[in-house]
Nucleic acid binder design. Structure first.
Lengths: 147, 147
DNA sequence: AGGTTTTCTTGACTCGTTCCAGAAACGTTG
DNA sequence: CAACGTTTCTGGAACGAGTCAAGAAAACCT
C-alpha cells in the first residue's frame, strides 16, 4: 500500500514524504475524514505534525487529483482517495455521515448536460457531482439517536 | 411580491418582519447571493441591520423550506428562493459564479437510487443535489479573466 | 556529498459563522 | 386599543476552519 502511494506521488511529480504517506494511509483507513480527523490519525502514526502540513498535503493532493474533496453543506471539507470511478455520496442531514454510493446510472449519468449551452453559453462543464441527502439508519430511528 | 412573501412567512408560522421581507427581496433580485451580499442589499433597502439578524433570517428561512442553501466547495454559503422545482447548479471553479440549470432529465432524475438499500441499509434519501463543475465563459477565456 | 528546490514548522491572522444576554418588535387576547 | 407573552433583532465577543509568510528541514538530482 505504501509502495503504491509512493509511486503515485512520484508519478504526479510530487516528493515522497512521511507526512504525505501518512495522510494517504489515514484516508485509506477512514475515508470521508475531515482535516481534523486526518490530523489525529496522522499524529498517531508518525508523531507530531503541524496543522499546516496536513492542510498543505490535502490541498496539494487534491489539486493533483490524488484526492477528492467533498464539502457537504454544513460540515467541513471531507476527503477521500480518488478511485477514478464514478461514485457519488449519501449524506446524513443530522450526523453528517457520508457513505459512498455507486452511480445509479452506471456511466457518468448526469453529464448529459442537455441545454447547458442555452442556459449558460460558454460554460465548460467537466464534472458532475451528485449528493443524496437524507437520514442514516441511526438518525432516522428516534431510539438510536445520538447528538 | 411583498404580499406573497408576507403570506408565505405567515403560512410557515413565522412572523412578518421588515428584515425578513428585505432578505427575501434581496434574494429575489440577486439569486445565489452569499450572506455578505444579502447583508449589503438589505442594508441598502431598510437601513442598519445586524449581521446576526441576517444570518438568523437565512437560517430560519432555510429550515422552514422557504430558502435553499447551497454551499459549493471553496466558497461561502449561497442562498436562493426555493421555487420547488427540480433544478441544479453550475458552478465555476475559478470565480465561484453559480448559475441555475434545469434538470437534464426533467423529473427528479437522480433519485433513482438504485442499490441504495444494499449500500447503506436504512438510509432514507429525500433529496438529490447535482452540481456541475467547470469554468464559466469569462474564466475559460484567458483574455477576459479577472482575479 | 553538494546544491536546489520542495516541503514542513511556527505563529499570527482572516473570514464566515455562531453564541450570548438584553432590548425591541410582533401578534394575541382581554 | 392596551397589556402581555413570544419571537426576533442588536451588539459584542467568540469560535473553528482554513490561509499567509518566513525560515528550517528534508528530498531529489548530479
Amino acid at each position: 500500500m505504501n509502495l503504491d502511494a509512493a509511486t503515485a506521488l512520484r508519478d504526479t511529480g510530487l516528493r515522497v514524504t512521511r507526512q504525505r504517506l501518512a495522510v494517504i494511509a489515514a484516508l485509506a483507513e477512514q475515508p470521508h475524514s475531515g482535516a481534523d480527523l486526518v490530523l489525529d490519525r496522522v499524529r498517531r502514526e508518525i508523531g507530531p505534525i503541524s496543522t499546516q502540513a496536513v492542510y498543505d498535503v490535502l490541498n496539494t493532493l487534491t489539486d493533483r487529483g490524488l484526492l477528492r474533496r467533498i464539502q457537504p453543506t454544513g460540515s467541513s471539507a471531507r476527503y477521500e482517495l480518488r478511485v477514478g470511478d464514478n461514485h457519488h455520496h449519501l449524506v446524513c442531514r443530522r450526523c453528517g455521515l457520508v457513505a459512498d454510493i455507486d452511480c445509479a446510472k452506471g456511466e457518468a449519468p448526469c453529464l448529459d448536460a442537455v441545454g447547458l449551452e442555452v442556459t449558460s453559453p460558454g460554460f465548460a462543464v467537466d464534472e458532475a457531482e451528485v449528493t443524496y441527502w437524507g437520514y442514516c439508519a441511526a438518525c432516522a430511528d428516534p431510539n438510536t439517536r445520538k447528538p
